[in-house]
Structures are given as structure tokens and as C-alpha cells.
């Protein structure tokens, strides 16, 4: 045992790697950007209930906005780049933190009762992986059209309707599971970001947790409304 306790590195030495707290801040900020995007995405999706032309026009608007000052699709690409960078940073930070956590807790307890910690950790880590897989599928399905039965560029309404047709109930089911995973991720994630950014307190915690849950539920319902409407024939 080291008897003379001296701090490793000593006072004032700058360490090169990021502190866990810095990584958490990155996750909070990139998570917040993603939530903002999800809100806009959901509002766009819901235009399907206004009819084919409304939705397709909106999709086209996203590409033509800013023209002629900006080239075609500029805004869309800016959004895509920001979002991709955010999600990559979010995942990289999460991975580093998860690996550090695994190193920090190398031995498991023999007795493992249900603890509040394990629930949130499971939701976030495994939920995050499910969401990532879903995003990949989702892009191939409804962005590039590769996996979409219709797959016509610009024909958003038709693509969606054919995607969630009653016969393709399993797509709707997978989509539902993924969106629910997103909901759980947000329920803990939004509050967690507020805590990480130092805006939580005992007095505000309840209100913040309620708000997180409400946002998560609204987004989940909003995103599920479209596939369910298609699958059950409300939108055809």
C-alpha cells in the first residue's frame, strides 16, 4: 500500500483526455439538438393528415427554401450535417463514457436487487443502440428509398402509405418499438441533460421530470400517429 499519499500527476498538471463531465456536456448539447430536430420532424410528419399535396409540397419546400440565394437543398444539407455531427458526437461520447464506466465498475455484485440506477442505465445504453439501428433502417427506407416498396424520390406520401400498408404490419411493429425506445430515451435524457447542464434542483426536479415525460409522450404519440393511421386505413 502506498503510505505517502500523493496525488497522481500532482497539482496543476493538465490532463489531455476529456473529463467525463465534458463528455456529458457534449451529450447533453447534442441530445438537445436532436430533440429540437425531432420536434420539427414530427410536425412535418403530421402534415400527412392534411393530404398528399400538403406533405409533398412541404417536402419540396425543405429543398427549395432559400432559393435562389442558396442552392437547391442547402438548408436540408445543413440540417443533415449538423444532425449527423451531433449524433456521431453523442454516440462517441456515450461509448467513451460506457467504456470508462465498465472500467470503473469491473466487478459485478453477486446480489443484484432492482435498483433505480440499473433501470435508467439500461434504457439509455440499450435503447441508444436500438435507436441507432433504427435510424440506419429509417434512412434506407424513407430517405434514400432503398428498402421502401414504393421508393420514389419526392413522393413522400406514397412512400409512407406503401411502407405501412396493413400487409406490412411487421414494419409498423418495428417502427413502434423503435419510437417507444426513443420515448424512453427522451424521458430520462431530457431531464438528464438539464441536470448535466446544471439546471436542476430539488425544487425543480419534479416539474422537470414531468416536462421530460410530457415531451417524450407527445413525440412518441406524434410519431406513431402516422404509421398507425396508415396501417389501420385512416390514411390511404
Amino acid at each position: 500500500m502506498v503510505t505517502v499519499q500523493k496525488r497522481p500527476g500532482g497539482a496543476g498538471v493538465r490532463r489531455l483526455r476529456n473529463t467525463s463531465l465534458q463528455l456529458k456536456i457534449v451529450m447533453a448539447v447534442t441530445g438537445a439538438i436532436s430533440v429540437l430536430y425531432l420536434v420539427l420532424h414530427m410536425i412535418g410528419n403530421l402534415k400527412i393528415f392534411l393530404g398528399r399535396s400538403e406533405l409533398d409540397t412541404y417536402a419540396e419546400f425543405l429543398r427549395t427554401v432559400g432559393e435562389p440565394a442558396l442552392p437547391y437543398s442547402t438548408l436540408l444539407w445543413i440540417i443533415r450535417v449538423v444532425l449527423t455531427v451531433s449524433i456521431v458526437l453523442h454516440i462517441v461520447s456515450a461509448t467513451i463514457l460506457a467504456r470508462r464506466a465498465a472500467r470503473a465498475r469491473p466487478v459485478r455484485y453477486a446480489a443484484t436487487p432492482k435498483t433505480p440506477g440499473s433501470y435508467a442505465a439500461r434504457t439509455m445504453r440499450w435503447g441508444g443502440v436500438i435507436i441507432l439501428l433504427f435510424i440506419v433502417y429509417h434512412i434506407l427506407d424513407l430517405t434514400t428509398g432503398t428498402l421502401n416498396p414504393n421508393g420514389v424520390g419526392g413522393a413522400v406520401y406514397d412512400n409512407v402509405v406503401s411502407d405501412f400498408a396493413p400487409s406490412r404490419w411487421y414494419v409498423t411493429l418495428f417502427y413502434t418499438l423503435a419510437v417507444v425506445a426513443v420515448g424512453f430515451h427522451l424521458r430520462h435524457g431530457i431531464w438528464s441533460a438539464l441536470q448535466t447542464l446544471g439546471h436542476s434542483s430539488g425544487a425543480r426536479r419534479h416539474a422537470q421530470k414531468v416536462t421530460s415525460t410530457v415531451i417524450a409522450v407527445v413525440l412518441t404519440v406524434g410519431f406513431l400517429a402516422v404509421p398507425f393511421a396508415v396501417t389501420f386505413g385512416l390514411v390511404a
Binding site: 463531465l21 463514457l97 470503473a104 440506477g117 431531464w191 434542483s201
Partner: peptide, 30 residues
């Protein structure tokens, strides 16, 4: 390791130190 705001710590704390202190830590660090 880093904090993931699970709250398991404060549940186990024999002195019931509230989770607020981690928020305060983050706030001061930022």
C-alpha cells in the same frame, strides 16, 4: 466513471445527500 444521472447514489446515501449537488457541480464546472 462519469455520472449518468441514474440517482442510485442518492438512494444509497446514508446521509441522504440530494442529487442537486451533482447539478451544482456541473453548473460550477461549466
Amino acid at each position: 466513471g462519469g455520472c449518468t444521472n441514474t440517482g442510485a447514489c442518492t438512494v444509497s446515501c446514508p446521509k441522504e445527500i440530494p442529487l442537486d449537488v451533482i447539478s451544482q457541480l456541473n453548473h460550477d464546472y461549466i
